[in-house]
Amino acid sequence: MEREDLLKMHSELMGEDVWEFHSLEKGGVKRSLSILLRGRYAGVKYPISDRLAVLATIAAGLLFLLSVGSLAVTFLRSRMDLGIILVVDRAVGDLVLGLLGFIYSAGIFLIDNPAFGAVLGILLLVWLARR
């Protein structure tokens, strides 16, 4: 490079501020979906852990909606004959039991499934290779 080019580059580097992605910060859903489906966003490649994190966030949201729904249903079913304290008590008990049962059955199903075991093994191997 010529001296003038170098000096010009220097003044540019000293003048410009670091770009902070302010314009992109609004696109949260777009970014998450892009990371989940394609594994890259804004020219940056994301590892499998980030994709799984997006998936886990979606699963957590769905679980939250389910739990709120079950609470509401329990409340509506038994509003006629019981006091509010008993209703809430029963709803929370049902919710906890339902969640535990769901997790238990999901775990049993996944452990019994050979395809899931294979996927888990491959993921473990990939993780070990990337370390």
């Binding site: 580059m9 670091v18 902070e20 910060e25 949260g28 940056v44």
Partner: peptide, 20 residues
Amino acid sequence: KLAKENVLVLIDKLRRIIEN
């Protein structure tokens, strides 16, 4: 959110400064 992109931009900038 977007911390990784910011770090990559900063790394690029620092590298250019050192080179220049």
